[in-house]
Design a binder for these strands. Structure first.
Lengths: 246, 246
DNA sequence: AACTATTTGTTCGTATGTATG
DNA sequence: GCATACATACGAACAAATAGT
């Protein structure tokens, strides 16, 4: 006898999410196009506006939509960003599911390979400006701490982009995001992390398309502050714990 | 003159999300505890139900909450799962932002290292049963294709767990998720991917705590089907494209 | 610079579904 | 079976933002 499958009472908003998502994936709503307005969607789906809004909120959070208010506004389909995986990783770190020691171990293994690939893939005409500017900007005056961190991580980001593998790029950016979170909140002793010209040899090796050299320099560079950043995590965790008391 | 910063009109539901999230992170709502009911939250935050629901929906999607209906139901705080990053990666793949070639390149680089770490970290008393069972189950009869795929990936998952770094584990599981998606939808020629006993040498090396051997076996194993899986992606993309027409 | 139209943002009241005891 | 305590869903209204006239 054929088994009956238990009826999974699925939330209406989940159904709407699934339909909209598959419509987007199928190309019916290409990147840049606009979804029907909330009121039109209520008619098409025959559900209330609250349901539509929940669905849109979820697709917005996943990075499929950006919402604009007002005349000509609405839900616009957008290119998925590599940054989204970073948010998921950051949440794991925030809940102490991931430790900085683990992040550091992965960085030490992956980033030298990324540097090697970047060197192999380096094309002076396309990448020179980007890379040189990233390094040159590092020690220019900065406005805010956020700004400061952004500059110190830029070389790593650019290399991840040049390496030609977006999976690697997403991973690297996630690790940088976690590292930045800690450094920013601890706000302590940035310059023990980076000496002036810390990235120079690395950048030179990449520009010379010297893969092994770039990998070696990246390893040296990362080893230089692994212990520091792991120490910073302890302070960070304490800080978070005490903030929640006060 | 001090620059004025444009007033960013933040959504009320975003504010609620931020407050709830920080309350959870602070430990005020530990894993397993229950948030106040929607109606109570309405009173505490002084906002409407709809806003509360949007906020809860977002926190649910991020993996912080599970919602249960009925008496004694409500929003329960839950441990964040490593699987969440997998969803973000899968979305990137679904939107063609990521190719299977990129996934394969990362797998070939990372999984041998994971195998090496797993071998180094292997503790017979804790891991033997898990690992042996994972391998033994591979060629047992299976009920569904989903079931089938789950079994073929189990050894990889177990090794990622044993390796002792959850960042690596999250990455490996993400790559397996994408691979499984393709294999499942193409539903074609599973057995060209895995010969009987494909994982035996790998598992033996790990049990012998032979790191380099485990890494070598993993490399051999992955090389064996890299081209196949990249070919399968082409079929997969075509299939998706034609489905959206019909 | 003011007006108007469109669309999201937010609220409230109400009704229904679902699981526990 | 029934009461209770939840989430789920609906509909009508008004507020706020934004682009064009």
């Amino acid at each position: 006898m054929a088994q009956f499958i238990p009826v999974k009472t699925v939330r209406v908003s989940e159904n709407v999410v699934a339909q909209l998502k598959s419509a987007i994936l199928s190309g019916r709503f290409p990147s840049g196009s606009k979804l029907p307005s909330e009121r039109e969607l209520t008619e098409e789906f025959q559900v209330s506006r609250g349901v539509i809004r929940e669905a849109i909120r979820m697709l917005e959070l996943s990075g499929f939509l950006v919402i604009r208010q007002g005349h000509g506004g609405g839900a616009y389909v957008t290119e998925l960003s590599l940054g989204n995986v970073g948010n998921a990783f950051l949440d794991l770190f925030l809940t102490s599911r991931l430790s900085m020691a683990e992040v550091a171990q992965v960085r030490l293994f992956i980033e030298p390979e990324v540097a090697r690939l970047a060197a192999a893939n380096f094309d002076a005409s396309r990448h020179s400006n980007l890379l040189e500017k990233a390094e040159a900007d590092e020690y220019l005056p900065y406005k805010s701490n956020t700004d400061r961190i952004a500059r110190l991580t830029r070389v790593h980001k650019v290399l991840a982009m040049i390496c030609g593998n977006q999976f690697f790029e997403a991973i690297v950016r996630s690790m940088l995001k976690i590292t930045a979170e800690v450094v920013l909140k601890v706000a302590w002793d940035y310059d023990s992390l980076h000496n002036q010209g810390e990235h120079t040899a690395l950048v030179e090796a990449v520009k010379a398309k010297d893969g092994p050299g770039a990998a070696r320099e990246m390893t040296r560079h990362l080893k230089g502050f692994t212990e520091t950043i792991v120490e910073m995590e302890k302070i960070y965790r304490k800080q978070m714990a005490s903030e929640s008391q006060g």
